[in-house]
């Protein structure tokens, strides 16, 4: 503060008057848009690779990692199988409660896997013991499991996830990436054709059920996906 009273105020007034004529900092938003830095992480969009196809592999890792479970998806995975992981939009309300439970640390009955057959876990425990519960040796664990059970039962995958601490979605992603790993028991030659038709029938039935459940505005989407399947 200077000795002369009022000098500071006068200097401040001069400064604001100088700024009055200076170029402005405002960006006129809808006309002018700032460049987003390449590393910006706030983009909500699916990325495409250099061939113009979607990079998303429907691995559900994002959906599983999303803390408030706002990410949802339905689609066709790398093996051409149709998934709707979390269920129809009508059940969003239930799922909200579910996720609240999950975040509070309490166990949640998982509707999605309720119908899968249980397995006898002793053999799997032995395998996991052999690989030291190490999630970085996941492929070896999965190989050994398939050798033991003949395929990868969902219950086994969930147990592996529980014991090693790896996300289920990551294990599922690993398993679905390798061609030699399978989620269903191998069929004999004559049986294979029957299984294939049965599976197709099951899928058609599932899609029909889905169609019915999504009646109304979303009916067309279900039909379109059914058409693209066949």
């Amino acid at each position: 503060m200077s000795r002369l009273p009022g000098l500071g105020i006068a200097m401040g007034m001069a400064l604001t008057l100088k700024k009055f004529f200076e170029p402005k900092a405002t960006i006129r938003y809808p006309e002018v848009r700032l460049d987003v830095p390449p590393k910006f992480r706030g983009r909500l969009q699916l990325l495409y690779d250099e061939y113009g196809t979607l990079k998303c592999e429907t691995c559900f890792q994002c959906a599983q990692a999303c803390p408030i479970e706002c990410i949802d998806m339905g689609g066709i995975d790398t093996k051409g199988r149709y998934h709707i992981h979390w269920g129809a939009p009508e059940t969003y309300g239930e799922r909200r409660d579910e996720s609240a439970l999950r975040r509070s640390g309490r166990p949640v009955p998982d509707q999605a896997y309720a119908h899968f057959d249980p397995i006898h876990p002793v053999k799997l425990e032995a395998i996991l013991e052999r690989f030291d519960f190490d999630p970085s040796r996941m492929l070896e664990i999965l190989d050994a499991t398939q050798a033991e059970y003949g395929h990868l039962p969902v219950a086994a995958l969930k147990l592996i996830s529980q014991r090693t601490g790896a996300w289920y979605a990551m294990i599922y992603g690993t398993a679905s990436y390798y061609r030699h790993l399978r989620f269903e028991p191998p069929a004999a030659e004559p049986l294979a054709a029957a299984t294939a038709t049965a599976r197709a029938g099951r899928e058609t039935a599932f899609l029909a059920g889905l169609d019915a459940s999504l009646a109304g505005s979303s009916r067309r989407r279900g039909r379109a996906s059914a058409a693209s399947r066949s």
Binding site: T16, K19, F20, K24, A25, T26, R28
Partner: peptide, 10 residues
């Protein structure tokens, strides 16, 4: 307008 211009706004 004047205060905006002094604030370096538009």
């Amino acid at each position: 307008k004047v205060i905006a211009l002094m604030n370096l706004r538009i």
